[in-house]
Design a protein around this nucleic acid. Structure first.
Lengths: 166, 166
DNA sequence: ATTAATAGTTATAAATTTGTAACCTTTTTA
DNA sequence: TAAAAAGGTTACAAATTTATAACTATTAAT
């Protein structure tokens, strides 16, 4: 039996197993914090976060990056605009497209919110040993980087994700 | 300035930054897959997963582990019972407590569902290099282990989390 | 020049999750 | 033993997210 293939199959399965354990842990941690410490819903914060990262995204791209159906994107962005956290921008070269850009207030607020919702986690992390923290920092960085590589729709032709699959 | 403290502060902030990036990525990946490939909602699957991991939990513990309000736990468990995925067990030593235990069908189904909802991710992972996969496997394992340590209510006196904070 | 496709919105319904309050039963405590 | 506390349920209401369909405006394609 091919050892290399077998080994990499094991790795794949291990990754899947691990991510599936990590997901509910993060969900639990963050949704609770988001609801108790901010006025934004998780969905709104995700959109703001994506815009904070990318600076500017079209409506479709937002739905794409977060797997949110287009009509809901409209609603979410409307709320963010009402709070002056983002703004609409027209694309002169294609007047169908509307870019959403994070505002200065949006960026500032996002950073403040990040701090708020991470406070409790931060306290818990500070109970870890220096070594554990170092390991976690390194490991989470690697997970983040590779996941962003893997889970970001580049290959997926024109991001079908927002629409129904098939 | 104390170098050690400073270094560990940096690590903490880095971890927070990384986890906050990872969370929406996983959410996007999993909620889409769960909705399209299973009959269970994310909430139901989280409960089933917790029971698959722990084998047996009381109603309160379930709400605790997942930060789900008690009334909703009742509703979720009712549905899982209707599908024969879990069952109620009385605690003779304290007749207030009702333990929920995963059934054989529940365990089998959970494994099958895990495979289903991971299929797409698996395909994407297999595009990674052997080295990247190895790194991700190792790193995700470390993140999982330390996060379980950190985010599981042991210290939190009697798991206040299900109830409103304060 | 039509036709088809893309980007986004509006309108609406349904599913899911969250939040409260009141209630019952059982156990613990004073 | 009476009162308080803990574990669960019931009954609602509200917030959030998901799903569809129809529609406008603009661009691309035949």
């Amino acid at each position: 039996m091919n050892n290399i293939i077998n080994k990499s199959k094991e790795s794949t399965d291990q990754v899947i197993e691990n991510l599936l354990s990590i997901h509910p842990l993060l969900t639990k941690n963050y949704t609770k914090a988001i609801r108790s410490k901010t006025n934004l819903t998780p969905g709104l914060l995700f959109v703001l976060g994506a815009l904070h990262h990318h600076g500017k995204l079209s409506m479709s791209e937002i739905g794409c990056h977060l797997s949110v159906p287009k009509p809901h994107v409209t609603a979410l962005v409307d709320k963010l605009i009402a709070d002056n956290l983002v703004e609409r921008l027209n694309d002169p070269s294609d007047r169908r497209i509307i870019y959403i850009q994070i505002t200065e207030k949006g960026a500032d607020d996002f950073i403040a919110i990040k701090k708020e919702i991470s406070q409790e986690l931060k306290m818990k992390l500070e109970l870890l040993s220096k070594e554990q923290l170092e390991i976690l920092s390194e490991a989470s960085q690697q997970v983040k980087e590779i996941l962003m590589l893997v889970l970001t729709d580049h290959g997926s032709t024109h991001c079908l994700s927002a629409e129904k699959i098939k």
